[in-house]
Design a protein around this nucleic acid. Structure first.
Lengths: 333, 333
DNA sequence: TTGTAGGCGTTATCAT
DNA sequence: ATGATAACGCCTACAA
């Protein structure tokens, strides 16, 4: 690997001059500039990002921390962030937290150690205090899908409460009253806020919350299975179930069909997130849109303006979920 | 951020000694070691990965290049690689190539510049020659889902030809003879090999390949739509269609159902990849398993033994696809 | 076992 | 406009 030193020798200039042309931040005469560029290309010179980063304390790359690398949710999120950043010439370094406190911290420290100019994190296990402390450090940390008081200017979030409300309301509007609810892990703010919205919709329509028709799942397909099995065992009638995310909804649909339910006539189901496969399900799943991809773009725009001082882009920090009506809800009369 | 220098001062030892305890590669007396560790923790010292990497020319992290960050295929692949590597204390730096030659090269150079100890790449647009040239460089490059002559020891691949054969054979075994085929972009080796397998199955069973029942799609849902629309327009009877991947299969299923076909009775469909959502489809999709997750694990094991000299792990370089029978194929008689 | 000192490839501050 | 020359934070012979 050719170094800046060899380039300077070949071009007959100093190290400093070579550095100047690669960064074109200082005036260099066209003639010497050309000499340097020529030398670079004949040597096939590639700047060493590590050395650069060490010397300049920048890296032109932002760290991303997600819970998992697979799954439609994080896929869309990462893709949104990456495409926005890449268009601006920045790179992305991705790592995972697996929703475990230790691993999330480890991941963040890895990214800091990697000299990222900023970090965009989707963390679920770590405490608000930790994040506030982190926020005092020198590398700015932005939060996806999470709102933390005291760093609201660094949070991009979805109004999950409204989302939960919309989901349940969609069912109520179709005449449903006996509504089961499969929640997500309650330590996750997303999950607990969605539940809050659900309860508000119930209250507003004078429907009592029934503990027997409440189940906490794991945000995965199995959670939907387990939840529905549980409800059926209760032998209490219910005509609809809202699932706190689409994975669980699909699990519930599958379980229902395997147990003789005709969908949506025998059972209405609504999901949350509007993940890609909701379109593939049969019947197609009515759900609440969670614009993760857009939110990813927005997070990227935020670091672009805050950290990289790009000319002001339009920033929007909290997103409103919307109802996506498809075919998994039946009208009750 | 505390540096190694401050730690050495506080502990009353030299820089070298501090370095030794962090790497524990040289003998240090227990007493001084403890002093250093204490100093580290009271200072909250975190080694600077960039400086480390520059000095040692290692980084304890491997670069991953995938075409896209979203989508079940790459999600599984990244997850497989990451979990295996992480268990071994290595980190992962992910970037994308978007199936475009320039971006793939850019991504690889980024990873090299980042001083990755190795690179695991899923590249589609770049030429074999480029890869062979790259392979002479100092950072080892491993290829996912691609076989390149001359660097077979660095390739983890699936026998796509066999997979294509299995898919078509599954249909033939159920009595189908008029079989349409929706292929993937033929510049992708995966796609062209699957087609080869399809043709072999046809030949073996004395079925002529019919150009009118052949369509090249984009490996996305739209490809399935477009393909099926095309076939129907031909007004040639066909009882089954094999799709070169699951996304296209789902598109085809959807289009078929929207146009009055009852699945699988009116039309049998088989996919490829056994991506997660095939389970969610209705009817559930019969497909060919592409063990990307396992292959990711294997690629990671490969770099673990080759690059990090872990004790020999069992390595398997080419994977055999298997048929996953579900409910999207009807028996014809 | 421990310390000294040069080096990794760039950037950036002074001079000139 | 260009050139010396310290940093940047750590590793690693080589010495002691």
């Amino acid at each position: 690997m050719a170094t800046i030193y060899e380039v300077s020798k070949l071009a007959g200039v100093s190290l400093a001059t070579v550095s100047r042309v690669m960064n074109d931040n200082a005036r260099v005469s066209d003639k010497t500039k050309q000499k340097v560029l020529d030398a670079m290309s004949t040597l096939g010179y590639r700047p060493n990002a590590t050395a650069r980063s060490l010397a300049s304390n920048r890296s032109d790359s932002v760290g991303i921390l997600v819970s998992e690398l697979h799954g439609p949710f994080f896929g869309q999120m990462m893709a949104g962030i990456e495409s926005e950043l890449r268009a601006a010439g920045k790179h992305v370094i991705i790592t995972t937290g697996h929703s475990e406190e230790d691993k999330e911290k480890d991941g963040i420290e890895f990214l800091i150690g990697r000299n990222c100019d900023a970090i965009i994190a989707h963390v679920e296990a770590v405490s608000d205090e930790y994040l506030l402390e982190l926020n005092k450090g020198k590398v700015p940390v932005y939060l996806m899908s999470r709102h933390v008081d005291g760093m609201e200017d660094k949070c991009i979030s979805l109004d999950n409460e409204v989302g939960g409300y919309l989901a349940t309301k969609a069912l109520i509007d179709q005449g449903h009253k006996d509504i089961a609810y499969i929640a997500g892990p309650q330590f996750k703010a997303d999950a607990s806020n969605r539940l809050l919205g659900h309860k508000r919709a119930l209250v507003e329509h004078n429907i009592a919350f029934n503990e027997s028709l409440f189940f906490i799942g794991d945000f995965k397909e199995t959670g939907g299975n387990d939840g529905l099995r549980h409800f059926i065992k209760q032998k209490i009638p219910f005509s609809a179930v809202v699932c706190a995310n689409d994975e669980m909804a699909s699990g519930a649909m599958k379980y229902a069909r395997e147990h003789g339910y005709h969908l949506p006539d025998d059972l209405s189901i609504i999901g949350f997130d509007n993940v890609i496969f909701t379109n593939y399900l049969y019947p197609t799943l009515t759900t609440v849109d969670n614009p993760v991809n857009e939110m990813g773009h927005m997070a990227a725009k935020l670091v672009l303006t805050d950290v990289y001082k790009n000319k002001k882009l339009h920033i929007e920090r909290v997103f409103e979920p919307t109802l996506i009506e498809r075919n998994s809800i039946a009208r009750l009369n």
